[in-house]
C-alpha cells in the first residue's frame, strides 16, 4: 500500500526529530510513541518544557515553527490533567510531532509556552478555562469562554454544573 508507506515515512521523520530532542534533554523527555495518526512524546520534567519548546522552534534541524493546536486532557484515573501540543514545521522541514505535558489534577500548573508560540496564549487560556490547570508565567491567565465568575471546570470528567448563575437556573 502506497498510502501506508507515505504515513510511516512521516513517522520516521518525526522519530528523527525526536532523536535530536532526546539527545539534548535526555531524561526530561519520555520514550517516543510511533503513533501513526500523530507520533508523540511526553515531557517528564515540567520545568524543562519551555526550554524544550524553544529548542524545538529554533534548532535548525527541528524548526517547529507552527503550533497547530493545544488541547487539554483529563486523566482522571492518574489524578492528572494535561495538554497535548500538535507541532509542525510549516514550509520548512514539513515534519510534525505531538508533545504531552501533565500536571497534578487539582492546583497543578504547567509552564506557559505563550512566549514561544503566540498561538499558545489563547489555547492555554482555554485549557485553563475547561480543565483548571494554571500556566505559570502566562501573560494573561484568565478564563476565555466561560464567564469570569463561573464555578468549576466544565470538561473535567467529574464536573457537575452549578445550580444557578446570577439567579438564573442552569440545569434543565
Amino acid at each position: 500500500m502506497e498510502e501506508g508507506q507515505v504515513i510511516s515515512q512521516s513517522v520516521q521523520q518525526s522519530a528523527a526529530a525526536y532523536a535530536i530532542i532526546k539527545d539534548k534533554f535526555g531524561e526530561a523527555v519520555s520514550a517516543f510513541d510511533a503513533n501513526e495518526t500523530m507520533p508523540f512524546f511526553e515531557v517528564l520534567d515540567l520545568s524543562a518544557w519551555p526550554e524544550i519548546a524553544l529548542f524545538m522552534r529554533d534548532n535548525p534541524k527541528l524548526q517547529f515553527n507552527y503550533m497547530a493546536c493545544l488541547s487539554g486532557v483529563d486523566y482522571q484515573s492518574e489524578e492528572k490533567v494535561g495538554i497535548v501540543c500538535n507541532l509542525e514545521s510549516l514550509g520548512k522541514l514539513n515534519h510534525r510531532i505531538a508533545v504531552k505535558v501533565k500536571c497534578a489534577r487539582t492546583g497543578g500548573s504547567i509552564p506557559s509556552v505563550a512566549g514561544v508560540w503566540h498561538t499558545a496564549n489563547w489555547h492555554e487560556r482555554e485549557a485553563y478555562d475547561m480543565y483548571g490547570m494554571l500556566f505559570s508565567a502566562h501573560p494573561d491567565m484568565r478564563r476565555i469562554l466561560c464567564p469570569d465568575d463561573w464555578e468549576g471546570y466544565p470538561l473535567l470528567k467529574d464536573y457537575k454544573v452549578q445550580e444557578s448563575y446570577h439567579g438564573i437556573k442552569v440545569p434543565y
Partner: peptide, 19 residues
C-alpha cells in the same frame, strides 16, 4: 428549551422564557 444542549450544554440557558 435549550435544544441539543439541554442535557450536557453547561453554558446554555435552557429556554429564554426563564429570563
Amino acid at each position: 428549551c435549550g435544544g441539543p444542549y439541554w442535557e450536557h450544554g453547561y453554558h446554555v440557558l435552557k429556554g429564554v422564557d426563564r429570563i
